[in-house]
């Protein structure tokens, strides 16, 4: 099986990222779930690059006009959109949690004023 230089470049990049992933795992910078998720992602990416020709055939068999690499780009775009959307929702939940914490702290320190009621119309500043 011969690889084009583009495939080789892509595989090198994937190997670099996978190496970084193992390093992060060893240093316990990421948890098991996250490690598995990214490992699956990079493995699928590497397999897709290695088997680009069969992927072309699969794309044609599915009746799509694009070739394999284009299909990969379309899928990558879809996944990215989904991840950004998920992240926005996650961020919205975090913002909500932060608001709740801020409110709890503010209410904990709140106390009624000890200032006397206003007697005149003059500004009490």
């Amino acid at each position: 099986m011969f690889f084009s230089w583009q495939q080789i470049a892509a595989l090198i990049v994937i190997i670099l990222f996978a190496g970084k992933l193992f390093k992060q795992k060893r240093k316990k910078q990421i948890n098991g779930n996250e490690f598995s998720l990214w490992l699956i992602f990079w493995t699928i990416s590497a397999l897709a690059i290695i088997f680009l020709k069969p992927l072309d055939k699969l794309t044609t068999a599915l009746g799509l006009s694009a070739n394999g690499i284009n299909l990969l780009f379309y899928l990558a775009s879809l996944i990215l959109f989904y991840l950004v959307f998920k992240m926005r929702l996650h961020l919205a939940r975090l913002e909500q949690d932060l608001t709740v914490l801020t409110r709890q702290e503010a209410l904990r320190q709140a106390s009624p004023s000890k200032n006397p009621p206003l007697k005149t119309d003059s500004d009490s500043k």
């Binding site: 608001t99 320190q109 006397p116 206003l118």
Partner: peptide, 18 residues
């Protein structure tokens, strides 16, 4: 705080709704 009102302060800016 100079007025006879209860003043509650948010330690972080959270917006009018909050």
């Amino acid at each position: 705080k100079k007025y006879p009102v209860t003043v509650i302060r948010h330690p972080i800016n959270r917006g009018q709704g909050a």
